[in-house]
């Protein structure tokens, strides 16, 4: 028993030292940033992304750092951990570090308004990224339009179905701004294709849950023709259920996001299509815009009633799509 205890202790100590090593390394690079600004006037941008456990944002981060290296920008990076309070204090840290600009990808719209105002008071420009806030002054918004993407995915699916058929909808986190906007986009697409009937509208927040939900939808509505999923994980879960029920020849699934597993699934013919938001490009666009703003360029582009540097998205389809034609 003592031997085991010793072993487990050694394991945990090793683990802890490893972790501390990591975090102190990132800290030192963070403080190094502000030092170097004063010397060679390298631009420093504070970036906080809403949730790094989401693969989408892992790609975004990659894009941000790629572009920052190219433009010689120092990035002070923070993970919002899907927690508004955490993100608020991160923005406060950016303000006290006196970064040149803040890129904010807010977890939620309303609660982060105070963070933006604090940056406003300190005279630090703020760019919202991918999701926006409802108050305070922001220079511009950078990102793709969730409404447009919702409509694109819907139109792709409905066009494939020849404008008529029964579909099931699997929404994402209830109440999230992206969920609300996707619904708007889907409704736009549904208006254009009156022959499409939504027979089930459910929600799931993980691939596992989406699979269960899809199994149950299939039981209640065995005759559906297509599934419109609000994100890639839900699309993959739905596709898992459809393949398990051996109905992949009858029911097609579309997703949204362009995550690596979904793009693979499209290539393998498991998903009809997904809308690729190009997270890598979106991340790059954030830094490009930040540099533009800091160099004094006026952002005038407008979209959906706000200043917006729009990230283009594209529908990606594969063998399943080609089979029909």
């Amino acid at each position: 028993m003592m031997k085991k205890l010793f072993k487990s202790l050694v394991c945990s100590v090793a683990l802890v030292t490893g972790l501390v090593g990591c975090s102190s390394a990132s800290n030192s690079s963070g403080s190094g940033n502000s030092d170097s600004t004063s010397k060679d006037k390298q631009l420093v941008v504070g970036v906080t992304l809403s949730q790094m456990s989401d693969p989408f944002f892992v790609n975004v981060k990659q894009g941000i750092f790629d572009q920052a290296k190219k433009d010689n920008v120092k990035v002070v990076f923070a993970d919002g951990q899907a927690n508004t309070a955490t993100q608020l204090s991160q923005v406060e840290d950016f303000v006290s570090k006196q970064v040149d600009l803040i890129v904010l990808n807010p977890t939620e719209a309303d609660p982060l308004v105070p963070a933006v105002k604090e940056a406003n008071n300190a005279g630090i420009p703020v760019i919202t990224f991918d999701r926006w806030v409802t108050g305070g002054k922001t220079v511009t918004h950078v990102g793709a339009s969730a409404i447009e993407i919702g409509a694109q995915a819907g139109e792709a699916l409905f066009e494939y179905l020849g404008g008529k058929g029964k579909i099931a909808v699997i929404e994402h986190i209830p109440g999230a701004s992206t969920t609300i906007d996707r619904t708007k986009g889907l409704d736009e697409a549904l208006k254009k294709y009156p022959g499409i009937k939504v027979v089930a509208r459910q929600s799931a927040t993980s691939r596992a849950e989406a699979m269960s939900v899809m199994e149950n939808i299939l039981t209640a509505n065995p005759d559906i023709d297509g599934v419109y999923a609000y994100n890639d994980d839900n699309a993959l879960g739905a596709s898992d259920a459809i393949i398990a029920a051996k109905k992949q020849d009858k029911i097609v699934v579309t997703g949204v996001g362009g995550t690596a597993p979904a793009l693979d699934a499209v290539k393998q013919g498991k998903l009809l299509a997904t809308v690729d938001i190009l997270p890598l490009e979106e991340g790059k666009l954030a830094i490009k815009t930040a540099v533009d703003v800091l160099k004094g360029k006026k952002i005038t582009e407008q979209h959906e009633g706000r200043t917006w540097v729009l990230q283009q998205s594209k529908v990606v389809n594969g063998p399943q799509w080609d089979k029909k034609k």
């Binding site: 929404e171 459910q202 939900v213 939808i217």
Partner: peptide, 12 residues
């Protein structure tokens, strides 16, 4: 969980 989805009950 199964039954509520079968009946397509509103998510909320």
């Amino acid at each position: 969980t199964n039954g509520l989805v079968l009946l397509d009950v509103n998510v909320y």
